[in-house]
Amino acid sequence: MGDVLAFAEQRDGVVRGVTHEVVSAGAGLAQSLGGECHALAVGGDGLAEAVSGLGGAGAARVKVAAHGSLAGYAAEAYARIVADTARDGGYAAVLFPATAVGKDLAPRVAALLDVPLASDATEVSADGGAVVVKRPVYAGKAFARLRMEASPAVVSLRPNVFPVEERGAAGAVETVAVDVDPSSWGARVVEFRSAAAGSLDVSEASVVVAGGRGMKDPEHWTLLEALRDALGADVAALGASRAVVDAGWRPHGEQVGQTGKTVSPKLYVAVGISGAIQHLAGMRTSGTIVAVNKDPDAPIFGVADYGIVGDLFEVVPRLTDEVRALKSGA
């Protein structure tokens, strides 16, 4: 009875990268609890095809709840389906990615199941049959170790933190019967307005190039865009300090920090950012931190692994050239 249910997030019928992290963490947890990890995907028709690869990340079974009206995220219906599946399967834990969908969905599922939720966990393990979680609090200025006393333990996992291990579980696909009535939904998505076409969200990227007030003018962001492109526009995203968001130079969706997004990319490059405590809160768990600042005493250097003291208008273009040269094998 130590099975774990992992919510397999998809977008437009494609399983998201973070889903592999959640399934992999779920498989690890299930192993310690003496059970199996099952993935549950909710979405539109043709979903079964898209999720069949989750066995590789450790799903012994892949449950698919598909319906034409569920192609896009529909909170109320998704929550019911996940909660019913969790209840029927007698799971010991239910895991979600702490993405926009996961953060919206997990609390609803927890409330339907009448159990607490630990959000945005950076560690999850089993201890004497109970699920124990480590999660950031005070915007990452501290970490709380929580023991979940109710079953199932509902936990959302911070993206980019849990490794994906190849496990090669069976991954047998099963259909979950769904009974949906969109006319009963109290909330309806009427439109999606995408940010700049093709740009990756800062919370999903494995590389972040962030700019602050030191950039002096929104037009200078072409410098950061060039660096982002050199690092790979498919993995890298732009971030911003609050100062430049408040000034209207950049959209709020890019803000990193206590009142913006919390990010943990493999590489975070802070350009012309002083490193105020509220900014550090949002990015200090990044893998490698690089800072470019003309002030050698800027607090950002206190958390940076590598720093360059200098004028960003000279340093960034050179850095971009060096990265380009490296990537082109020169």
Binding site: F143, R145, L146, E149, A150, P296, V303
Partner: peptide
């Protein structure tokens, strides 16, 4: 039904260096 077992400071980041 959640027990707070411990509150910890984040692990100190290894000392960085000015390149």
């Amino acid at each position: 039904r959640v027990t707070l077992e411990a509150l910890e400071l984040p692990p100190a980041r290894p000392d960085g260096r000015i390149v």
